[in-house]
């Protein structure tokens, strides 16, 4: 890290990141839908359609299943809150946001896991067959995906000698040759698969289908209505932005602000938006070409990601 930053700048960076993730998440969803529609020969809804949907949902009635406990209304809040806490400290725009010292790799991975677990509990809490089925599937996938994510980022933390994400990013900026090292590429493979699994994208889950028997994520949120559903959508999209932003900056950190200053921060903000946008377009193109994997094959894919991540750690330890 390049010395201590003024506290006000750090706070401004964190605020910018939280605000950007919150506003940009639904826009990213809109962008992926637009790209997919165009590739399918449709016109597709405008990019800001998800925001229209959220605005409408915010004004609708909030329903609650008869059997549901306090977990059901709490889960969407936990989902949004965990994603935003990660957004506040993650190295997205600059390497030194206000909560950057707490943006530890373990903290980030388990904060995201906390959001998934909250949603899975809420799915169980509804007392419906689909809620329980979705929760069981999501946790089956989560149980394999989280360790793969953790070990993949661990491989990056070995050369940086720190599990702090901003430190990992700034050390790889200082040694760009590390970015092309074998452990980076192995970890990148693992990270890509986990990002798809964690966000319920193809080939793990199909965000565009409403077919009850195949859905994983949507099965857990079938009972949410109005503002709660808006929060779930917001939380899920914030999570996608955070994970894509981390992916971009851990593996291609160029452009991120390493020194305080309006110009460097502006460059950092523009590059991270461009990177996440490009990854979103890439995700949409990938999804148009992909079929969904059979559910029982998904753990095989994720075990593959885990093996890649373990190999990355082994290589990182052997090749200093």
């Amino acid at each position: 890290m390049s010395g201590p930053w003024p506290a006000a700048t750090q706070l401004a960076v964190s605020t910018l990141q939280v605000g950007g993730v919150l506003v940009g998440g639904p826009l990213l969803l809109g962008l992926t839908r637009k790209v997919k529609a165009r590739l399918e020969g449709r016109t597709g809804p405008p990019v800001r359609q998800p925001w229209r949907d959220l605005r409408k949902l915010a004004g609708r009635e909030r329903t609650r299943p008869e059997q549901a406990s306090w977990i059901f209304p709490l889960a969407p809040l936990v989902l949004v809150a965990t994603a935003l806490v990660v957004a506040a400290g993650a190295p997205l725009v600059a390497v030194n946001p206000a909560f950057g010292t707490s943006a530890d790799l373990f903290a980030v991975v388990y904060l995201l896991l906390l959001g998934s677990v909250a949603l899975a509990l809420a799915g169980l809490d509804t007392g419906t067959a689909f809620g329980g089925m979705g929760a069981s599937r999501a946790l089956t996938i989560g149980a394999v995906a989280e360790p793969a994510l953790l070990v993949a980022v661990l491989a990056l933390s070995i050369p940086a000698r720190s599990s702090n994400l901003p430190a990992i990013v700034s050390s790889s900026l200082a040694h760009p040759i590390w970015l092309a090292s074998p452990q980076r590429l192995l970890a990148l493979g693992a990270f890509l698969i986990v990002v798809l699994a964690e966000n319920g994208r193809l080939p793990v889950d199909n965000p565009g289908t409403h077919l009850e028997l195949t859905m994983i994520h949507e099965a857990m949120v079938l009972e949410y209505a109005g503002p709660d559903l808006a929060l779930v959508t917001l939380g899920e999209s914030a999570r996608l932005v955070v994970l894509l932003g981390l992916l971009a900056n851990l593996f291609a950190p160029w452009g991120i602000a390493t020194r305080p200053g309006a110009a460097t921060l502006a460059v950092g903000a523009v590059t991270v938006v461009a990177k996440v946008g490009a990854l979103g377009v890439g995700l949409a193109v990938f999804e148009v070409f992909m079929a969904k994997l059979r559910l029982f094959r998904v753990p095989e894919l994720l075990s593959g990601a885990f093996v890649l991540a373990v190999l990355a750690v082994v290589v990182a330890l052997v090749v200093p």
């Binding site: 529609a37 016109t43 809804p45």
Partner: peptide, 11 residues
């Protein structure tokens, strides 16, 4: 393509 006008069928 009715979806371009913000119309969708939900599950």
């Amino acid at each position: 393509d009715a979806e371009r006008f913000g119309l969708r069928l939900e599950a």
